[in-house]
């Protein structure tokens, strides 16, 4: 079975984001970029499925400017077999990403597609579900355990208040949650080998997809700062503030 993993290049999670002075977005100039953490987990899961003999090939896909090839090389160093770069000027919005991926899937015919549940920049949490809808396939989102057996995939999902397990017909779409696995490190010899693994570049036109704008970002601002606190003089006053002012109890 072939696996497809889609990955996104995002700002490194630990970097403190700075909103640009003109409010057009977040300053990404010379900022450290990395694989989106949920995508890293998706890559790891795919490689583990390959190591377990469930999958025969892992293809990693990323969409965006040339720079995303860095993250594709990282995924190749971690163990993916080949990469597809869908080249666009900017990072397209989720529905466009889902449409591009749907075309890749149509061509590649994987048994399972694994994606991160959301990216830590736009926090949309949409692509996997949209892709499943477009491909007309079942989905197992926010996975904390993935087992492939007998033409089905059992996905344990993290839901509000606990865990829920679904059995999905293959091919299926799975999105990863944080507890699915702990990604490995890229090892030096593999980093060197990854430079020679195949990486195909395609354009949206090659895939027959026209990118369309659905949502316009008008402005990006810094969130309101925490206001200076106050001292209360009694337990009664504290309870009153928490009930009536902060409304948290």
């Amino acid at each position: 079975m072939k696996l497809i993993v889609s990955v996104k290049r995002v700002i490194d999670y630990n970097i403190k984001v700075r909103v640009k002075a003109d409010n057009t977005g977040v300053d990404l100039a010379n900022v450290k970029m990395a694989l989106n953490p949920f995508c890293e987990i998706a890559v790891e899961e795919a490689i583990r499925l390959k190591e377990a003999g469930v999958a025969s090939e892992v293809v990693v896909v990323s969409i965006g400017p040339t720079a995303v090839q860095e993250q594709l090389r990282t995924a190749l160093a971690l163990g993916a077999d080949r990469a597809i770069h869908v080249e666009t000027d900017e990072l397209p919005e989720p529905l466009n990403v889902a449409k591009l991926l749907a075309k890749v899937i149509e061509a590649e015919q994987p048994g399972l597609v694994i994606l991160g549940k959301q990216s830590i920049d736009s926090d949309n949490n949409q692509v996997g579900q949209m892709l499943a809808a477009l491909a007309g396939r079942p989905q197992g989102t926010f996975a904390s355990e993935v087992k492939v057996e007998g033409g089905k995939v059992l996905v344990t999902r993290e839901v509000d208040g606990g865990l829920r397990t679904l059995s999905l017909d293959l091919p299926a779409i799975v999105t990863t949650d944080l507890r699915l696995n702990e990604p490995r490190y890229a090892k030096l010899p593999d980093i060197m080998k990854a430079k020679r693994k195949p990486l195909d570049v395609k354009t949206p036109a090659d895939l027959g997809v026209e990118l369309k704008q659905h949502i316009t970002q008008l402005k990006v601002e810094t969130p309101a700062q925490r206001e200076a606190g106050i001292k209360v003089d009694s337990v009664d006053a504290l309870i009153d503030k928490l009930k009536n002012e902060a409304k948290v109890i």
Partner: peptide
């Protein structure tokens, strides 16, 4: 360094988390 035999194994952090 690896090619010169100064180290026998290495991992590189690919994110700040790592």
């Amino acid at each position: 360094a690896f090619e010169k035999g100064l180290l026998i194994d290495a991992v590189l952090a690919s994110s700040d988390h790592q």
